[in-house]
Write a protein that binds this DNA or RNA. Sequence first.
DNA 1: GAAATGGGTTAACGCTCATTAACCGAGCGG
DNA 2: CCGCTCGGTTAATGAGCGTTAACCCATTTC
Lengths: 196, 196
Amino acid sequence: MSTTTAGATRREQILKEAARLFAERGFHGVGVDEIGAAVGISGPGLYRHFAGKDAMLAELLVGISEQLLTGGKRRVAEGEGTPTELLDSLIEGHIDFALDDRPLITLHDRELDRLRDSDRKLVRQLQRQYVELWVEVVRKVYPSLSEADARASVHSVFGLLNSTPHLSRPGALPGRTAMAGLLHRMARGAFAAAAG
Amino acid sequence: MSTTTAGATRREQILKEAARLFAERGFHGVGVDEIGAAVGISGPGLYRHFAGKDAMLAELLVGISEQLLTGGKRRVAEGEGTPTELLDSLIEGHIDFALDDRPLITLHDRELDRLRDSDRKLVRQLQRQYVELWVEVVRKVYPSLSEADARASVHSVFGLLNSTPHLSRPGALPGRTAMAGLLHRMARGAFAAAAG
DNA sequence: GAAATGGGTTAACGCTCATTAACCGAGCGG
DNA sequence: CCGCTCGGTTAATGAGCGTTAACCCATTTC
């Protein structure tokens, strides 16, 4: 075993590289040999760590959905402040995720349909819970919003926040903190405008 | 040749179904037999109309990129009103596209990397021109925005506007006109907030 | 120190799937 | 009526790729 060193156990290393490759070229677009090569082993060696290619994608998507949901729940539970502050906290958490785990965010809404039925159902359920979490908070901040409008606006803001990973060129963009601030302002502005 | 008739020539029919299938299950996830079956012919019959599967995707992506760009250019050229009205016009056009051609919008930013180099370069160039079109207008409306911020905000608003197709469930959402209005308000609010 | 186990290797299998070959009937121009 | 082209068909081909088989070495465990 060893590898109690830092953290990067072989499994995690594989997942990280698989996420990057899947995000870059799509699940079907990357072969197991490539994933293996990315971590220094080759081809079927991966099967000592995962049941198959599908299992890697499933673990990635379930993992990210759980992280988002539990992070959101934690923020709601800890939330001492006003609904507005709570919404800001949710936005901030999501932005951190989108900026720091770009490949995962990309996979999140791109490759869901490649999962086995049971896994897909699980991921969708987690995603739905996460959306509902936001919807409740948004409706507290903007009571004038109907539930349908609130839900639609939450989805749209996700689209806004998740748009960053698509920008391949790292040059022409603001730095990480500037970008985070910009996205945050835009998200709040979008919600406010949705409420009219 | 004929087919000066109405519109739905076999080629267009194939493109439409291919777009739907590609959007649903990804380029690599759908086989030529399925595409053929969707238009009532089967398998290799498609090769009477297209050089190959790649050619269909290329034509779809180039087509949509051109449509967006020329539509935007037309609006800018015709634009008699204030910059604000022009921006509204751009937003409206993009929303119409996102709501009426969902599969194409989805493909637009999902399957770009499956193209041959030359096609991909072309599509990217068209997309870039479209973004720059927006950036110029946005900066006229909000002169306080730096170019980098303006560009980032345009990308983010595209993410917002393009988020609708991802919502598979057609039930829980507002109707088409209500959705268009909501998206429009949110886009404007996001830009305004970006400018601070 | 023998045996088990964890983590690799390369070779082989088998399936899927895009593409091509070979063939064919229907219109239609001359 | 002949022959060409248009738009199909099914069968064959061939590559790519996920997965499994068979084998191997290092390290730990009893």
